[in-house]
């Protein structure tokens, strides 16, 4: 199980490279510019959902971006403590940016 963190908008190569290696059994945490990928009804959002992975996004970053009311309901907003807990759950972590 890999914890992927994605800090890049859906148009980036970081986004597409991340999706290639995101498995159903993995966890993805969206942070920084990565949170835009959770915007409801966007291509990025449906690609993420198709991966079948467990997906979270960092709430302070989503708030800063002004997108909290536009997010797909399927993703969970989390705080830094949860981020830390996710890191502990996963033996490997890979940062995409």
């Amino acid at each position: 199980m890999v914890l992927h963190t994605l800090n890049a908008a859906p148009g980036s190569t970081a986004f597409s490279d991340c999706l290639r290696l995101l498995k159903q059994s993995d966890i993805l945490l969206l942070l920084g510019d990565g949170t835009y990928a959770a915007l409801k009804g966007t291509d990025g959002c449906s690609e993420l959902k198709n991966s079948g992975a467990e997906i979270h996004l960092l709430e302070p970053d989503a708030r800063a971006a002004g997108i909290v009311d536009r997010l797909d309901m399927q993703f969970k907003l989390v705080d830094f403590d949860t981020f830390a807990a996710l890191s502990e759950r996963c033996p490997t972590q890979q940062a995409w940016y």
Binding site: M1, V2, L21, P91, T92, Q93, Q94, W96
Partner: peptide
């Protein structure tokens, strides 16, 4: 391939991207 790359992520203790 993608499968083998994912395997590499899992095999190593640390990944630096």
């Amino acid at each position: 391939d993608d499968e083998a790359m994912h395997e590499l992520l899992c095999q190593h203790d640390h990944c630096l991207g």
